[in-house]
């Protein structure tokens, strides 16, 4: 926890984050470039799915990130809730739009893949439905931040929304699985090792790493943005107060 307490000071955070942001961006671009090269040119087409299997290299990591971002959001919320860590609230707030975009990307690419494979843009299959519900949970969380002006209160209330959503995600997942299942079962993280050939796993993991590190870069950029926006708002409030006192005198 020591490291996290040191980061509570925005200036210290800025000192660490400033060089980290371009470094992470560069690594993400390199990994993504290599991953795309393998995905598009240097991996076999699937014997059943043909070239459409290449959509998976964009789609699967996006779906991983959709869940990962929600976890980051919920744990940041809990940290802000329990330890009153100021950066935790900011990190929870700015993670939401990033996670929502990953979720939208997963839904969109999944739909592109579904048309040739299932013959439909959309099917009310268990995983599609639970990811769609996840997307709505993200939007609800963002809506709470948008509708409360007082930042401190918004942080506390949004944290409750995030945590309640997080404990409900397994229940939603389970209920939707019970409801209907058409999507293929998990084939990478399962007991007994992955069922995907190594030539396809390489681009998949490269893309996964690129997404993850890219998320780190975006998160740092978004936190810095938010901190600067808040400082700007404080400064303009102070300036406005000064101007009004001068007028009175």
């Amino acid at each position: 926890m020591g490291v996290f307490y040191e980061l509570a000071n925005p200036e210290r955070f800025e000192r660490i984050a400033k060089p980290l942001q371009p470094a992470l961006t560069a690594i993400a671009v390199l990994l993504g470039g290599a991953g795309l090269y393998y995905a598009l040119f240097n991996s076999p087409a699937d014997y059943q799915q043909g070239d459409t299997v290449r959509i998976m290299y964009v789609h699967v990591p996006a779906a991983w990130m959709a869940l990962f971002c929600y976890s980051v959001m919920a744990f940041s919320s809990a940290a802000g809730f329990i330890w009153k860590h100021p950066l935790a609230d900011v990190s929870a707030k700015v993670t939401a739009p990033i996670g929502a975009v990953f979720t939208a990307l997963a839904l969109f690419t999944g739909s592109l893949w579904g048309k040739p494979m299932w013959g439909a843009w959309w099917a009310w299959d268990a995983r599609l439905t639970s990811v769609l519900i996840l997307f709505f949970l993200y939007l609800g969380y963002i809506a709470i931040w948008e509708s409360i002006d007082d930042k401190a209160r918004a942080a506390r209330l949004a944290a409750i929304v995030a945590i309640v959503g997080f404990v409900n995600i397994p229940i939603i997942k389970f209920s939707v699985d019970w409801w209907n299942s058409l999507h293929q079962p998990a084939s990478v993280f399962r007991d007994g090792g992955p069922t995907i050939d190594g030539s396809m796993l390489r681009p998949l993991f490269l893309m996964g790493a690129a997404y993850m590190i890219g998320f780190g870069a975006m998160l740092i950029a978004a936190i810095r943005n938010e901190l600067m926006a808040r400082r700007l708002q404080r400064l303009s409030e102070v300036a406005g107060r000064k101007a009004s006192t001068v007028n009175v005198e």
Partner: peptide, 17 residues
């Protein structure tokens, strides 16, 4: 409306079962 947006996704399990 905000209540509906926040709540409806969490109602999915109850509706399904």
């Amino acid at each position: 409306v905000l209540i509906a947006i926040l709540t409806a996704p969490l109602y999915a399990p109850a509706l399904i079962f």
